[in-house]
Nucleic acid binder design. Sequence first.
DNA 1: ATTCAATCTGGATCTATATCAATAGCTATT
DNA 2: AATAGCTATTGATATAGATCCAGATTGAAT
Lengths: 256, 256
Amino acid sequence: MSINTSLQTSLCKKCCMSGLCFNQADESILMPKVRSHKVFHKSDILFHAGQTFDAIYILRSGSAKSSVLANSGHEQINRFHYPGNLIGFDGFDNGTHAQTLKFLETSSVCRIALVELEKAVATSASIRLNLLKGMSHALNDEDKLLMSLNNMNSAQRLSSFLLDLSVRFEKRGLSSNVFDLSMTRVDIANYLGMAIETVSRLLTQLQNEQVIKVNKRRVSIVDFEKLNQYPLHEREPYFLTTTNVRQPNIMQANVA
Amino acid sequence: MSINTSLQTSLCKKCCMSGLCFNQADESILMPKVRSHKVFHKSDILFHAGQTFDAIYILRSGSAKSSVLANSGHEQINRFHYPGNLIGFDGFDNGTHAQTLKFLETSSVCRIALVELEKAVATSASIRLNLLKGMSHALNDEDKLLMSLNNMNSAQRLSSFLLDLSVRFEKRGLSSNVFDLSMTRVDIANYLGMAIETVSRLLTQLQNEQVIKVNKRRVSIVDFEKLNQYPLHEREPYFLTTTNVRQPNIMQANVA
DNA sequence: ATTCAATCTGGATCTATATCAATAGCTATT
DNA sequence: AATAGCTATTGATATAGATCCAGATTGAAT
């Protein structure tokens, strides 16, 4: 079997599950049948919550969001996915997907049927490890989100979000300071737990403060330093601000 | 090898990783050396964030909390652990633990060294599946928490928390309506993303409404129905309440 | 071109809940 | 049994950000 040097194959080699398709030693193709690439379009759904779990996927291009559904019917986005991300392992828990995965733009994925995965995992220690790594990474990512939701205000959450995206783009060899958001403001608000209006206001605020530039979905980070410090700005306790000195004795007197 | 019918062994048989220690067919002990039980006490730490990842654990008795640390130094609890829970797989991501695990009371764990785990996982399909299931379950659990943080108010979050505990106790064959919290109010507040004062106030409120009874750490669920409905009570939009009809014209007149 | 539906911004208002404060009970240590 | 240090409860107050509204802009479909 000869070495395929096409763009497709070079993408595959960077994949965290590349051990599925290549022999690490001689880079020859091991299991080409796993490479069943499928193309989806904006708003297409890869799997619904509740659907039978029969495969995991790797995002090759484009972007997607995964979300869970509350009893109330409200969607909660828990992750945005970019090329290289492992998707769909939420189904291991009980054999059906707990999440819904929806594409944000035209995208392609590599589907690995469970039977194939099981075979691969049974034979290859590196594939085993990569699978566990991918799941553990997702878990750690969610911990970070949890943390930011609980300990940061809206401005801090939004700036952290932008920085996170920047890092993820950079890791993929793209620009870290100019990028396009593939998600809507509604998605961002949902993910970060705030109202769209707040997202919008904060974006303009960051722009006014010369930290970023925003034009529709296009974001340019102008001042990384400031954006980085943003999440650190702790609000001063209000009782310490000069304009708001509390005078409890007087207040009590008024009440009496 | 004869069948050991001691309490210890019976506990082990219920374990999600029992395949590590028993042959499913004849229930004989396969790898007794994996069963290295260790006892810890309140506030003991099983592993710190940053520590080298060299084993995963199963909680046998007691309880624990896992948390991640923010740059600011603030702890964020992401999970409470009870017997049967798989612990420590956060380390797969990059070889060091991302979380810190602290015991809430005297507890014992079963330690499975990575080398042992790797051997077991290489040979047993059921152990592989159980490991993946455990991780996937943890992920889905965190999704639920994320959801409740973003879409529920404090009262709803607290009642969901109590119901979740109740279910977990019941699954372990314990009382679902009377149980002791092993965590402090501070821990609950941290986990649920609210102030301790709010936790305290809501607990007394729930008690006043005859939904639960609280005495220190002891919680009794009096009315499951009400507690269950609590998270569903949606606040009415304020513009619809009779006492708060907006009269924009008059307001504007006052300002002018 | 024109209509219709999203999507985005901005202003006004309200409220859930954090924060500050004070008190009291419980534990552990000496 | 005194001291110190957690833990929990309750009250008063401030405010961040949600909610409601409306106008502007964009984009798709006819």
